[in-house]
Amino acid sequence: MLTFDFYLDPALTTPVEAALQFVQDDAGPAAVDKVVWFGSRDATRQCLPDGGTDVLVQATGAGAGDVALATSAIDLESAVPGAALSLGAICYGGLENVIPIYLRVLDTSHTVGVRAVTITTNDLAEYLIE
């Protein structure tokens, strides 16, 4: 089982289990930002893409096109909604290597209701750091 996961805090104490909710006004929505953290508390681990060149994070699901991703608040300003986010070729474990994942949701459907989104990585393979 991967030790790399998404967490609710930079200390990687609480994995994101329940759905993060982004509330949007149907007529005049305003962007809502949240931040989660990606990493592993185990400093002996590293993860690489299991195929492909980079570790990627992307939104999938009905509302994926309204989700912008970035690794910093500054980059979030220019992030393209729906685009995958690259975390680099290798992600390292340990708290000093935690990567913040900024999410910005701005609804474009203007349709009342709940749309599920999954934030997911591509296929990863986890190794010991040698």
């Binding site: 996961d5 993060l20 909710q21 982004f22 006004d25 149907d26 299991d50 999954t118 997911t120 990585t121």
Partner: peptide, 15 residues
């Protein structure tokens, strides 16, 4: 040591 994906759910609630 392991393979798979990491993911979490989110929801866009348009109200």
């Amino acid at each position: 040591l392991a393979t798979g994906v990491a993911s979490f759910p989110a929801a866009i609630s348009v109200v």
